[in-house]
Design a protein around this nucleic acid. Structure first.
Length: 754
DNA sequence: GCGTAACCTGTTTTT
DNA sequence: CAGGTTACGC
């Protein structure tokens, strides 16, 4: 690139942006408001380093939070500097440090082909640990335990520190979970035994690596002369410490972020990192990008009027020179289905009136489950759409099953993979046999695989033979994983595991779908192998490649002209001409889970801010007065956020809603009354204990101790004790004729008497 | 050990 | 609603 071109790109920038690009040395922080050209500054900064300071791309590290952001940045940099950018270490925190850990794995006692456990794997491991420890699984739910462990790791608290920390101990005691520390310890040990790391381990263990191996740290400190972090407001402590250590020699660290867009608190992101940053780097240069180039004045002002309700924020003022634009439009609906219809027809109308493409529209929601009603309405109106998020391709059962085989062919210590495949397809190896293998492995302090390969010294009979055959199959898979390329190995394994055959024989619609999915997986592997840029073509490297992918990374989705449906979280960093934010209802957005603390409400508000600032031209907000949630129709209140918007920026009686509002209101009233009516009837039935006219399986809410009941076989009796065993409720009844019986309430035909 | 029927439970966002 | 769990009969 000539100096002319260099001058051109600097000319494109405003003063603040230029400052962000050219001050490359020393620590700097760029506070970048929404739509202020943040990515442009970051890419030009890197281009500037390479072009004007002759920095080798080998010495640059650029960290993002999503694969999509990383890819976007790479293509944009390549557009400016071409292939000179190819050696930049650029990617998500997780993928970059996974790569580093693979290179240094032996120092931590891991093999370099360690497995990465996804959330599902982690939770099912926790589940089996809780079961083995004979703890109450109602108290130690996998979700809760996982979040607790994850939180600890993100704060760099090891299990040793966790167990010796009186604050955690007291906290767990108070919550009735005194064994949490022990579970944490066992969980970590089991991961190590499985040669596996979970998502948080990738960062935690990088910290361990840097702490315990100064030579390794030193090597990377001198390798990375320039470090850049995008979306800095989303870093957790673990990530922050990694970057601080890496930058401590050269001090050339540049972080870009916006405290108003911090929406990953639940993942341990800590706004404090922005504040600490000034303390850790006293000669920090701070640049604020405050001019918004994306949205109309109305959208910017409305967004500001929302975010100003938050107490915790850095002072900055986002402004724009763009046109005033339309007010935000409010769409009121009586049900989620009607909401879908109104949104779809609004899209249709706007599309026709303004000659827009499908891809100019996005429908954003708080939870993935909200996509359903939108999808239906769009399908009916024949509008093409694409849904991001939700269950990713790689999380589908049939795909995870195949992947478990592939994983196990690479790593025989992978416990979660083994549990998944040992009896799939059915080989007559049931739960009790698996328990025996676990026990044998513990008794002799050997791996599951060692038990399986010597099964006849532990077990006899048909099951042992089945396990031996399984081991033989796996051995052949191990050989093909080693000797063949990823595609050949995967095809061999899919065929000979019996999974493909089983799916092929399932001729139901879902079965066909599953079979196609597996074929698609094989195609993806084929593509991977055929890609000339890929140097390592074996199965292990393919698995490493996909371990950190999410549904939002599907490239195929990015080329179609289709309306985008996604959660607000995944919309961060994107922009659309018109944005629909749906489900603006109290308890849904802001989420009811969040109402426990003020800080959490502020994060919800930032989420709303993010959603609004995705839009260039127009924003539509919609809510439904009735919505199906978890199979139940629920009446809803409009979100408090609707009232927080300064009224001058929002149009209350839009054409869309006024057309239908009168009938809607009547309909809604009837609907609500109907529901209340039904609820009332149910209430009467449940609490009045009318003698049943017939013998029925008892309603569990009706039956209480001391109640008189009649049973068709045992006659009259009195309930002496109610009991919950597992997930089922039981009642002990003392019958006048036959004495005490325990009845499973789900099946017990009883008449209840007053 | 397996298939089936009935039951329970969560109901937030993502690498 | 969907995914997971349990009891029961074979």
């Amino acid at each position: 690139m000539s100096d002319d071109v260099a001058q051109t790109y600097l000319d494109e920038l405003n003063e603040a942006q230029r400052e962000g690009v050219i001050n490359t040395d020393g620590p700097s922080m760029i506070i970048a408001g929404a739509g202020s050209g943040k990515t442009r500054v970051l890419t030009y900064r890197i281009a500037h380093l390479i072009r004007h300071h002759n920095v080798d791309s080998f010495n640059i590290m650029a960290l993002t939070f999503t694969n999509k952001a990383a890819r976007e940045m790479r293509t944009r940099i390549e557009r400016v500097v071409g292939t000179d950018a190819r050696n930049i270490w650029m990617g998500t925190f997780h993928s970059v440090f996974a790569r580093m850990l693979r290179a240094e794995a032996s120092k931590l006692g891991f093999p370099s082909n360690f497995t990465i456990y996804d959330t599902q794997d982690s939770k099912s491991l926790i589940k089996s640990i809780v079961k083995e420890m004979r703890l109450d699984d109602k108290m130690y739910k996998p979700n809760v335990v996982y979040n607790r462990i994850s939180g600890a790791k993100n704060r760099l608290v090891s299990w040793q520190e966790y167990m010796s920390n009186p604050v955690y101990k007291a906290d767990d005691q108070e919550n009735g979970k005194p064994e949490m520390g022990n579970i944490y310890k066992t969980y970590v040990n089991r991961c190590v035994k499985s040669d596996a790391m979970d998502f948080d381990d990738l960062l935690f263990n990088t910290n361990v690596l840097f702490r315990d191996h100064p030579d390794v740290l030193n090597k990377y400190q001198h390798r990375f002369h320039y470090i850049m972090v995008d979306e800095f407001q989303d870093t957790n402590i673990s990530q922050y410490v990694i970057t601080r250590k890496l930058a401590s020699v050269r001090q050339n660290i540049c972080v870009v972020g916006d405290d108003a867009q911090s929406i990953y608190g639940f993942r341990g992101a800590d706004i404090q990192n922005i504040l600490n940053f000034e303390k850790d780097y006293p000669d920090l240069r701070v640049v604020k990008l405050e001019q918004n180039y994306r949205s109309t004045q109305n959208i910017v002002n409305a967004a500001n009027s929302i975010i100003n309700n938050n107490k915790a924020q850095l002072r900055k003022s986002i402004w724009t020179e763009n046109e005033a634009g339309h007010q935000l439009e409010l769409i009121k609906a009586t049900s989620d289905n009607e909401e879908g219809k109104l949104v779809a027809s609004a899209i249709f109308e706007e599309k026709v009136n303004n000659l827009l493409k499908n891809s100019d529209f996005a429908i954003l929601y708080r939870t993935n489950s909200q996509s359903r009603s939108m999808e239906e309405a769009l399908r009916r109106m024949n509008i093409k759409y694409k849904v991001f998020g939700g269950l990713s391709f790689y999380q589908r059962k049939e795909i995870k099953d195949i992947l478990a085989y592939l994983r196990f062919a690479i790593n025989q210590n992978d416990e979660q993979a083994l549990r998944r495949i040992i009896n799939l397809p059915k080989r007559g190896i049931g739960a009790s046999s698996i328990d025996k293998i676990v026990v044998a492995a513990y008794d002799h302090d050997i791996s599951f695989w060692e038990v399986i390969t010597n099964i006849h010294s532990f077990l006899g009979g048909r099951v042992a033979d089945a396990i031996r055959d399984f081991a033989t199959t796996i051995r052949s898979f191990m050989i093909s994983a080693q000797n063949k390329d990823a595609f050949e190995a995967a095809s061999h394994i899919a065929k000979n595991s019996g999974l493909l055959k089983e799916l092929y024989e399932d001729k139901t619609v879902e079965g066909l779908n599953r079979y196609e999915n597996v074929q698609e997986l094989l195609n993806a592997i084929k593509e991977y192998v055929d890609n000339p840029e890929v140097t390592e073509k074996n199965l292990g490297s393919f698995l490493q490649e996909i371990a950190l992918l999410t549904d939002n990374d599907d490239d195929k989705k990015n080329n179609d002209d289709a309306v985008t449906l996604m959660t607000i979280h995944s919309a961060k960093g994107l922009e659309f001409k018109m944005v629909f934010i749906v489900g603006m209802e109290e308890d849904l957005f802001p989420s009811q889970m969040m109402l426990s603390s003020r800080a959490d409400l502020e994060e919800e508000r930032r989420l709303f801010y993010v959603a609004l600032t995705r839009a260039e031209k127009r924003v539509f907000l919609s809510y439904a007065l009735n919505r199906y949630r978890f199979g139940r129709l629920k009446t809803c209140e409009p979100s408090r956020f609707l009232e927080e918007i300064d009224p001058q920026f929002i149009r209350q009686n839009s054409s869309v809603s006024s057309r239908t509002s009168q009938t809607n209101n009547n309909y809604a009233r009837n609907l609500v009354n109907g529901i209340n009516h039904q609820k009332k009837r149910a209430f009467v039935q449940k609490t009045s204990y009318q003698p049943s006219t017939d013998f029925k399986p008892s309603d569990t809410t009706n039956l209480i101790e001391g109640m008189k009941v009649e049973h068709p076989k045992f006659g009259f009796g009195t309930v002496t004790q109610m009991d919950i065993q597992g997930s089922q409720r039981k009642a002990k009844v003392d019958f006048d004729e036959v004495g005490e019986k325990t009845l499973l309430l789900a099946f017990a035909k009883l008449k209840i008497h007053n």
